[in-house]
């Protein structure tokens, strides 16, 4: 009798575990909303979750509406591939980084160029608008090894941050506006103060064994996700810089990651043609989707109900969660 009870208890526990695991899996349906003429390198969703910007090897930027995915506008002017885009905190402007060595600032409403900022001496790869309300500062990274801070109002360079020993790949502000994270082919991630009088990095995060391609803060600024050319994704506790988790997330390079506003859901995309979603509290993979083409870039709506992908075949695709609305939850966001 006792053995029977133990057996039943064990079955109940196993069933509970199975249900729990199943409950955490998220299911998405894929569709293509449009195409660029060449590979799509950058994706950025605005703060209001009403628009997504994509940029491409075809030298253009496109704006699409969310959640319906209608193409709104094509921004032309860059003279080489556009590597990244970033909306300002108020969604009124868009910054773009290009291999033509410029950062351009666009009026989202009119599509006109407000500023063309020159100063990098090689391709500009990363760009990130300060998320602080009213701030007009933009951070950029370049193959010239530097991180530069620009004043979008004046259209001038405000500061150059030197420290990386190889080309810098991407950059991100923390959402509290206090820090900037930059990553590089030198396999490090550097954390900088946004105080323009400080010129040395606050700390250097080491541990990646391949060029680090991207870095992104969670919305509460407590975590930093970084990804490298070998498909490894690392999660760091900030501002301490303590490594929380390291995941062999993909089998090829990971160029982009995105946080949901719950600060525990991370989405990663890779040239291994897959998109994955992770629960950072457990390290559990809660969604894997093979999209059949290399994924260069991605971003998510605040609740991760919609994932927008920039793909190597030029397509802009969306993964929609069944029954999900595009809008944010009540937790704020970018």
């Amino acid at each position: 009798m006792q053995m029977l009870r133990s057996g039943v208890s064990m079955l109940v526990v196993l069933a509970a575990c199975a249900v729990s695991t199943w409950a955490q899996q998220r299911s998405y349906t894929a569709s293509t909303i449009g195409k660029h003429a060449d590979e799509v390198l950058g994706v950025f969703v605005n703060d209001a979750n009403t628009m997504v910007a994509t940029c491409s090897l075809d030298e253009t930027i496109k704006l699409w509406s969310l959640p319906d995915g209608k193409e709104l506008r094509t921004l032309t002017g860059h003279t080489a591939q556009v590597n990244n885009v970033s909306f300002s905190g108020d969604d009124k402007q868009l910054a773009s980084a290009s291999s033509d060595r410029t950062i351009r600032v666009w009026d989202v409403q009119t599509g006109k160029v407000l500023q063309t900022m020159r100063g990098h001496t090689a391709d500009v790869i990363g760009v990130y608008y300060s998320p602080v309300e009213g701030s007009q500062l933009i951070a950029s990274t370049s193959f010239d090894k530097t991180v530069k801070i620009w004043d979008a109002n004046l259209g001038v360079e405000a500061k150059t941050l030197r420290g990386h020993t190889m080309q810098t790949n991407n950059v991100a502000y923390s959402y509290d506006g206090k820090f900037i994270a930059s990553c590089s082919d030198d396999r490090t991630v550097m954390i900088w103060s946004t105080d323009l009088t400080k010129k040395d990095p606050i700390m250097t995060l080491t541990g990646h064994t391949a060029p680090v391609l991207t870095a992104l803060y969670s919305f509460d600024s407590k975590y930093l996700a970084t990804a490298d050319e070998r498909g490894v994704v690392k999660i760091w506790s900030m501002p301490s810089g303590e490594l929380v988790r390291s995941m062999n997330a993909h089998t090829d390079l990971v160029q982009d990651v995105a946080f949901a506003e719950d600060n525990k859901t991370l989405v990663t995309g890779s040239l291994d043609k897959s998109v994955k979603m992770w629960d950072l509290t457990t390290g559990q993979n809660v969604m894997t989707q093979n999209v059949g083409t290399e994924v260069w870039s991605l971003d998510v709506t605040s609740n991760a109900g919609i994932i927008i992908l920039g793909c190597a075949d030029g397509s802009v695709r969306v993964l929609k969660e069944a029954g999900s609305e595009a809008g944010r939850t009540n937790r704020g966001g970018r």
Binding site: L41, G42, L57, Q81, N83, N84, S99, D123, I125, F143, N169, P211, L213, E229, D252, L253, Q255, L271, E294, W296, S297
Partner: peptide, 8 residues
């Protein structure tokens, strides 16, 4: 091998 963004 496939190269990262901007390195085409």
């Amino acid at each position: 091998r496939p190269t990262a963004k901007g390195k085409r």
